[in-house]
Amino acid sequence: MPHRGLVKVCLEEGVFFLTGKDFTNAGAASSSLKGILERLGVRKDIIRRTAIAAFEAEMNVIIYAVAGMMKYRITDTEISVIINDMGHGIPNIELAMTEGYSTAPDYVREMGFGSGMGLPNIRKNTDSLTVDSVVGEGTTMEFVIQLNAVN
């Protein structure tokens, strides 16, 4: 294969659509992504990190936004996931990145979420994370996980 290592060879890409407040199907997109990574034979610890990050991001869309999309692209070197939503936006991203900070309503906490660990946990499990948000319009988050990372 020419230029291997310089050119990223795309193995698979796709998109999942997410509906806000649809708690019945919350996690279905991340579950599908996990299944794709398993089928491609990605290492188990990398699958776990990706699944956790994707699930946290997906739950954020379900909890806070009206609707959103999860786009993924798997190359021979990395997994990149972009989640964008139509939601309230995040007024202070730095604050949202703080462990324990949450604006989740009580019914979300009763389901076991909204303890303010979401964004910090995405950062913990990924190799790079960018969050862009416009208040009143929505949030776009992109994270990348390297496939050749040492454990």
Binding site: F23, T24, A26, G27, S30, S31, K34, K44, D45, I47, R48, A51, I52, A54, F55, M111, G112, F113
Partner: peptide, 22 residues
């Protein structure tokens, strides 16, 4: 990994969480 989870929560999100966290 290779853990069991003890919980008092019984909703569908518990299964999803367990799935993601292996």
């Amino acid at each position: 990994t290779k853990s069991l989870l003890i919980t008092g929560l019984t909703n569908v999100q518990v299964i999803r969480t367990a799935e993601m966290a292996a």
